[in-house]
Nucleic acid binder design. Structure first.
Lengths: 134, 134
DNA sequence: CATAATTTAGACTAATTATATCTTATATGA
DNA sequence: TCATATAAGATATAATTAGTCTAAATTATG
């Protein structure tokens, strides 16, 4: 019932980048040091975020990572989904999933409500708003 | 971000028992067949529920498993906690946990809200109410 | 008291998921 | 065009979760 460590690292990374003026890059190494996450592992995490359309990466000297969208257009839900896949607390509740017991399964209904309540919160605020709150 | 398969089996088991008049027992084998969960694994799950104070078990002939409390006093949150431990979407958010960054960590605040919203839903209805809804 | 039914307990295996490392490809600037 | 910085991709290791098997303990019943 926990998000993965990788998802946590991803959120930290995105927040770190969201503090910069939009468009500015940071090296993975720098992020890893500031947020105290293992660098090589962070690179893989960044790959997932890039594939998910949340980060732009640039190789080579002067390269690095930057947000693909402005911080007011990204939510924590987006980040978790980019790293873990669909936000679902049970396989049968992932979007696009159907179960033949769906119509009468009492578990599905209660879990769906819980999942939905959680999603609503994770989508409520953008990274920008989260940082402004402090 | 998912509950474990074991937690799902546990919820199914508890709902199956909640359909019976309070005090009535069912054999593990019977539950496993009705709910289509592997029997030997279900036994382990039942142990956890019994240790968590949710089930009473009785060995021997005519033995079996029954609810320890009436179905209107049990929530899905109770069941998940008995099987998985504290309901937390990140280690730092488990009850009793403290983190020195707590006061200013932006991740903690947003995740806490999401976790709380989910918990509220999982505690909103008793097993009795869940079954009555159908 | 003997027997059969049934759960308990623990060790073990297999599968899946998470984490970490190593190698390759690409971009930049001298 | 070469050396270096940097991310991408592939592979290996570790941890967790899921499931099985065996033996022992408990209880009801004849």
């Amino acid at each position: 019932m926990q998000i993965t460590r990788q998802a946590e690292y991803a959120i930290k990374t995105m927040l770190e980048l969201a503090r910069l003026p939009f468009g500015q890059t940071l090296r993975t190494q720098e992020i890893s040091q500031r947020q105290e996450v293992p660098e090589v592992f962070l690179k893989k995490t960044i790959q997932l975020l890039a594939r998910g359309g949340l980060l732009a990466t640039q190789r080579g000297a002067q390269g690095g990572v930057r947000l693909y969208l402005p911080a007011d257009q990204i939510t924590v839900a987006d980040i978790i989904e980019a790293v873990e896949g669909p936000l679902a607390i049970n396989p049968c509740l992932a979007e696009g999933q159907h179960c033949e017991k769906e119509s009468f399964c009492p578990i599905r209904r209660i879990l769906w409500r819980a999942q939905n309540a959680m999603k609503v919160e994770l989508r409520r605020e953008s990274l920008q708003e989260i940082l402004n709150e402090q």
